[in-house]
Write a protein that binds this DNA or RNA. Structure first.
Length: 596
DNA sequence: GCCGTTTTCGGCCCGACTGTTTTCAGTCG
């Protein structure tokens, strides 16, 4: 049993919820929440820190008490405090906090007065009209709870970033045309490039008297209006997506954009910093006394706090403020740094376009190289290639490379990693390639130890360049495989191979904390489109956003290298240089002979 | 429960909106 940071974070979050409902000290609760968030974004395994006897007190927000609780959970998988709290309150009650309009005090009240412990009981109480009888609750609140619990039970979900961007762009275009609107921009998790977005946060600057709130709440896409004031309105679209719009005067644009972009944790940290230097920071500006000294741009607010501009992707309170103070912010990789793409398909397997069309599209993007990596035979559904078809494609690519100028196609394969860690094609054909991209496409459900071993064995094969979409997650569809990522990354470093950040909007795999972990481990990350058509190179923008959230600089990314620098790195992974392919082969000779 | 060039106790971000209150608590972001 191996405890991941996320497991410990989940324990702390649940403790915070239960303490909150019990009415415990708000700052004690905050300490648990802060610790959970810190662990979620931490690039190293605290379990390993415990095993190595490292000092957990050194982690931000972790004191002696939380350090001992982390050690307890890492060692036993349990937390005595949580078990005790679960005896005092039914654990399912924390689900009620997810209902908009229900906070800890009201959940407690409903529990004490009506015995409500679950979402089902909440729905029943609302339907029977019992909730409006409780002091402090009225008919409107009761109806709101009923609506919310019903949509909750039907699983309202976060939308993928790519979808949110489209919706936001459409609404912003509409708002920009309303009289009195000066600027209309996206904020919130969308601007921070989170992989999924729970609701849209939009910001406009307006002249006094602009009808923007009225126009917004009456837009044809709006299904219902949750609230509407002078500076703020919330609506739910027909699609179910919630959109919050804020309006401020132009002089406050920067302070408001900063505040509404968040994250909440980043904002709180900035406000504390403001206090430290005798300022007050709110969404209208930075104030010394009653005098506004900054606020028209974000940079002006950061400057007032003595900080350089911090790019939105980094605003998670994961060390960016400390880095900014030390003038040590990373210069993040951007789209124009990419010199090529190492994962793409053609219609030879499950892609839509021809080899030549893909090559020309890559050249139009300004790429120097494109790796063609079809599926292998096991993935019959995708018309995966066997050794014979792959050999033919290798010849086709050689012929095309001889003919085309300004783009080089690299010969690759997205070979299936079988359940036992063998690869789905024989070494005799793999050895003819420029790179071997390995990926899991079945048996996502193996237990952690076996899944991890599967990957480690695959990486030990004589030809293995890049682990594609390492966790196999599909946002909102399939959870990440249970793998020991720190171990996989260590292996990649020892082996000299690479990991992928797959830029498909439904994958974005590795995620941002994992990217940062790879960076800290010194493993280069390939940001790949996994293109199945000439249009799919557009996915790369989402990969770049995710990479930025993972603090990746151009130097941390494999495919920012020009071809001349990339080739020797790939050659080494294919066992064709002085670099040892594997210091300690984990696959025995008889297993290797069994590889198809 | 954490934290400290205002330190080991007394702080801990700040404002808008809603509903049910008759002056404000609770919730949200």
């Amino acid at each position: 049993m191996s405890i991941a940071n996320a497991d410990i974070a989940a324990v702390f979050d649940e403790i915070a919820d239960l303490l909150d409902i019990q009415g415990a000290n708000a700052f004690r609760i905050r300490a648990y929440r802060n610790a959970a968030r810190m662990l979620g974004g931490l690039g190293r395994s605290v379990r390993e820190m415990v095993e190595h006897g490292e000092d957990l007190d050194a982690l931000p927000g972790i004191g002696p008490d939380l350090a001992s609780k982390i050690a307890e959970i890492a060692a036993t998988g349990h937390c005595a405090l949580l078990e005790r709290l679960r005896k005092e309150l039914p654990p399912e009650i924390t689900a009620l906090l997810k209902i908009p309009g229900l906070g800890p005090r009201r959940v407690r009240l409903l529990h004490d007065e009506l015995g409500v412990e679950t979402l089902e009981q909440l729905r029943a109480a609302a339907q029977d009209g019992r909730i409006s009888g409780v002091h402090g609750f009225g008919l409107k609140t009761q109806q709101r709870i009923l609506d919310a619990v019903q949509s909750r039970l039907q699983q309202e979900r976060r939308v993928k970033l790519s979808v949110a961007v489209q919706v936001a762009d459409a609404i912003l275009a509409e708002l920009a045309g309303v009289p009195g609107v000066k600027q209309a921009v996206a904020a919130g998790s969308l601007r921070r490039q989170r992989d999924t977005v729970g609701d849209l946060d939009l910001l406009v600057t307006i002249e006094r008297g602009s009808p923007v709130m009225e126009r917004f709440t009456r837009s044809s896409q709006v299904e219902r209006v949750l609230s509407r004031g002078i500076t703020r309105a919330s609506v739910v679209l027909r699609s179910g997506l919630q959109v919050d719009l804020r309006a401020v005067p132009p002089a406050s644009f920067g302070a408001a954009w900063l505040y509404f972009t968040g994250s909440k944790a980043h904002t709180i940290a900035l406000r504390k910093l403001a206090q430290d230097v005798g300022l007050k920071l709110n969404e209208y500006g930075a104030y010394r006394g009653s005098r506004r000294i900054a606020g028209d741009t974000e940079a002006s607010v950061y400057a007032a706090l003595g900080l350089p501009f911090i790019t939105p992707e980094l605003r998670e309170d994961r060390g960016e403020i400390e880095a900014a103070r030390a003038r040590a912010l990373p210069v993040l990789v951007n789209l124009s740094d990419l010199r090529g793409d190492l994962h793409a398909h053609t219609r030879e397997s499950d892609g839509r376009d021809s080899l030549e069309a893909m090559a020309l599209a890559a050249r139009r993007r300004g790429f120097e190289y494109l790796a063609i990596t079809e599926h292998s035979a096991r993935l019959a559904m995708a018309r995966g290639l066997d050794a014979e078809r792959l050999a033919r494609q290798i010849d086709d690519i050689d012929e095309l490379n001889a003919r085309l100028e300004g783009i080089t196609l690299l010969k690759g394969i997205e070979v299936d990693i079988l359940e036992d860690g063998r690869l789905d094609l024989p070494d005799t054909v793999l050895t003819r390639l420029d790179l071997v991209v390995g990926a899991i496409h079945h048996r996502f459900d193996l237990p952690r130890e076996r899944q991890t071993e599967r990957l480690l064995r695959a990486m030990d094969r004589p030809h293995f360049s890049l682990l594609a979409h390492p966790t196999g997650r599909l946002l909102d569809e399939r959870p990440a495989c249970d793998i020991d990522l720190p171990r996989v990354l260590r292996k990649a470093r020892e082996r000299g191979c690479f990991v992928e950040l797959n830029a498909q909007p439904e994958r974005l795999d590795l995620d941002d904390p994992a990217c940062r972990m790879a960076r800290d481990e010194g493993v280069l990350v390939a940001i790949d489109s996994d293109a199945h058509s000439v249009d799919d190179f557009a996915h790369l923008r989402f990969g770049i956003g995710q990479a930025g959230r993972g603090w990746l600089r151009a130097a941390d990314v494999l495919n920012t290298r020009p071809l001349a620098e990339l080739r020797p790195l790939l050659e080494a992974t294919m066992g064709r240089s002085s670099r040892p392919a594997s210091p300690q082969p984990a696959v025995r000779a008889d297993q290797m002979a069994g590889a198809r």
